[in-house]
Design a protein around this nucleic acid. Structure first.
Lengths: 120, 120, 120, 120
DNA sequence: GTGGTCTAGACCACG
DNA sequence: GTGGTCTAGACCACA
């Protein structure tokens, strides 16, 4: 039983793929708050990558407040961020706007896009 | 008169910044179909970057059908793509979904997000 | 009745948190000279941590002369150190200078910093 | 000619020593805004450490806005941070208060401490 | 056993 | 030549 896989052929760095997969699982609710995530070593073995690569991903997830770590015990899923600086939210909205603009340019209608967002 | 600038201090590669700026101007309608874009050399001088960097951006813009090139004449703004393979559209929707999910996870409400999309 | 708590989610090692909490309580005068501190086992139970962790904290507090231990009786709060080797004082001043320099660099004014120190 | 040295015997991680040294030099004004810092490889050679270690330090300095990096060109000293979130300032003041309290406990007088701060 | 630091290398993207 | 990613492995601090 494996949580997810990484695509070695993908141009996207492996550590970023790990980050995104964890974000996805957390956001989807598949990984509950306070639950423990596999140790760096186990995760590395599971994915077939080097522990350093997993560590880099875990560390970034911690910096972004998705994980918290207790040395000697492991890493855990953190509670959803309460108060945000607003800086990251802004960046996310910027990304959203850019993507929607490109979709419209490529012929997608705004109602259709909104319909898709509604489905989420 | 300069179309745009690149931010050297930004982590984003310069060639990607050039691509995004062109996409933005084309999508916004500031660059009309069939109009000629500056030559690689001129653009490089204007932006203060290496011609290789501009060339890489132009080549990618051509691959993505935003530009078309007539050898010996230069590059031109292409007409908006009509029929798409659907592959890129799918990728854009994937990106959209991921961004919206993260916004929701960070406390934004779906109506608020849709409101923002409406404004585009 | 518990003297203090440790924050497991904090990056700071638990044994260091224990040390700092004791220092804080001693410096604030909440723990009087010669008073007995809880045994390692009790403290570990109270905080919900491993006795080894408490032991490490106590040992360091003893080395820094905040505690003294009578074998078979337990650990006690020591009198404030009178004559110091000067080595630790120097280190503390170094830390102070570094912190103040960084505050100034980040835009804080020296008078404002001194004002804050006055409040202590 | 070497900017600084690292102490391999020190318990403090090498990458943190590098960070602190750079902060010190920047705050002292020895490293001017926009000036280029040695490449990761050169710095590693100079200090006798692995490039990865230097990279880790540079990256953190960039995250803390002391450096900015242009891939393919190198790292540069950034302008002093203008608007701060206030979060880091608070942490610095907390550290300051703790250090001053410990100095007082160890027999230093507050006026003497302030005098020392004035000298900075 | 856990994460954190570090080395000695290799290969890639960027300019 | 620059920084970025990754591997294979070692040693240390923490609980």
């Amino acid at each position: 039983m494996q949580m997810f896989n990484v695509d070695f052929k993908n141009r996207k760095p492996i550590y970023e793929q790990i980050i995104e997969n964890f974000k996805r699982l957390i956001i989807a609710g598949d990984l509950k708050e306070e639950s423990r995530v596999p140790s760096i070593r186990d995760m590395a073995k599971e994915l077939g990558v080097n522990p350093n690569t997993v560590q880099k991903a875990y560390r970034e997830l911690e910096e972004q407040s998705y994980f918290y770590t207790i040395i000697g015990q492991g890493s855990f899923i953190a509670a959803p961020p309460k108060s945000d600086t607003g800086k990251e939210i802004g960046a996310l909205y910027d990304s959203l706007v850019g993507t929607v603009r490109e979709l419209i340019f490529r012929g997608e209608s705004k109602p259709r896009i909104i319909e898709r967002v509604e489905m989420i």
